[in-house]
Design a binder for these strands. Sequence first.
RNA 1: CGGGGUGUGGCGCAGCGGCAGCGCGCUUGGUUUGGGACCAAGAGGUCGUGAGUUCAAUCCUCACCACCCCGACCA
Length: 591
Amino acid sequence: MFLPYPHPFPHATIRPTHSMFKEPHLMRMTQMFGKTLRQAPAEAETPSHRYMLRAGLMHQIAAGVYAYMPLAWRSLRKISDIVRYEMDAAGAQEVLMPALQPRELWEQTGRADAYGPVLFQLKDRRDRDMVLAPTHEECITNMVRANVSSYRDLPLNLYQVQSKFRDEPRPRAGLLRGREFIMKDAYSFDADPEGLDISYQKMVQAYRNIFTRCGLPTMAVEADSGAIGGKDSHEFILPAEAGEDTILHCKECGYAANVERASFYLPVLPNERELPIEQVATPGKKTITDVAAFLSVPESKTLKAVFYAAEGKLFFVVIRGDLDVNEIKLSNTLKASGLHMATDEEVKEAGLVPGYASPIGIKGVTVIADQSVTNGSNFVVGANREGYHLRNANFPRDFQADVVTDIAIAKEGYACPKCRTPLSATRGIEVGHVFKLGTFYSERLGAMFLDESGQQKPIIMGCYGIGVSRLLAAAIEQNHDDKGIIFPAPIAPYQVHLVGLNLERDDVRAAADSLYDSLTKQGFEVLYDDRREETAGVKFNDADLLGLPVRLVVSPRNLQQNAVEVKGRTEERGRLVGMGETADVVKGMVS
RNA sequence: CGGGGUGUGGCGCAGCGGCAGCGCGCUUGGUUUGGGACCAAGAGGUCGUGAGUUCAAUCCUCACCACCCCGACCA
């Protein structure tokens, strides 16, 4: 092999000690692709979106579709390397699956329709229906089916890190909700429920390790498992203002749940003697607030009637007046798709009077009661007659329900279901989600195995996702100030931002070059601002914007003392360190 | 899918029937140099697309497209 030039990376054989990258990680700003913007593009509002565009981390190609530029890609690689390490450590094996799949595969599980318009669909040249995979349960189950046939092949855990596609109704906030995004998904396969419990717990622990190692503390909360998920499901939430999820948690006992699923303790009302029912005139009083005030009773002594419609049917929902319906819980109870609040017309068609509807004497409509109707007595309810309500309605004396269950939404300040301490609310970003899937996919796709007694059984599955690209955005969402990004050290694109000032001076440039060289040789990842034409202010502002953990300044002023200024991104001001001690000081800051 | 908004140079914006402008960025030369320097000279635009009105359309009308925000939705 004959090289006409000196090798461009003379340190390629040096093994880095502080970096997870095996290749040399040299980068001078004069060479780096991507530039910073003083003003963020107008379309970006969320901090992470604005900073990622301003700092030259990514480039938008379409709504919810972005190209990752070198800095973002380095950060994403660090995240996915941590993910890979922990998944491997937990015994999972990495695979890579196609994004392009036949629609037929999705028809076998019924999810082609279930996903609806969110599923990207296309045709190949032979007019065959194809999809871009939004997730990979079908694909992996199909693959496992062909390769697992005995309990001896189990347990098994396979994972992938790759792009997934969802035609979201509304892409949002840059990488927080994209239509093409990078996701890590792991799928576990077990012979029995106990095995699934173990696989699940291993993944939960791996997730805690991953987020901790990324420098991103998350909370694991109980989550709604949706229509297909099994009984257990947890989300990993990164607290941040821009988050789309609301979490209720108890500071006393640690209970934490997504509001979609959170329950709460409802104080027991004193048992009253049931009084005879009576009608009262309540002209023009349609809302619970009005009725309660008009009759001088607390809202907890009223019952609220709410109507929902789904799949052409009307559902009469009764809940205590001081509570509100959680539509997700309701939807899970009804197992109906397309649930929505019924219109006044739909209500009238069922022979009911909006504003004065009553569960008493109702026929031909499914009645769902929140369990709160059993907590309290002598309620005020509608009389199903314009302008009238009934006093002293009692369950089950005066009305019955087809289902009585928990369909109430929890709110901040309500009592913790476990210890009765008032619950706190936090907004957060869902960065991970684990499910116990059960046998939904294995049954439909025929992924069976023979157990020890020779009996054929469906494999029991779990799935475990981490939004890798979303995690990057979430990290910035949680870690920034008015100057720019504040990267947690483990996922920063580079560890050190080396700023050279007055580089046209030979002595300064020589010192900065040599520090860059030396740190790089020792395995540090250094982004070297070697631009001669930019002023100090520009360089400092770019350093703040890019948000690398450590900033080093080599300048004539510092050089007089044979020193380098060292400043952490979050520190107010830097301190001078002898040139020779720089590496040790930096090491302490990034590890 | 409903409501709202925006499309003019790489980014931020102004212009509003009659020669397409400003700031930043970019190029060249010079002066500067520790928190987004200064002077001078330049390069760069099918004014989102199509149709219509008009002597004349970036501007008015209509349709479409794209992007953003709120909501619905988000296994």
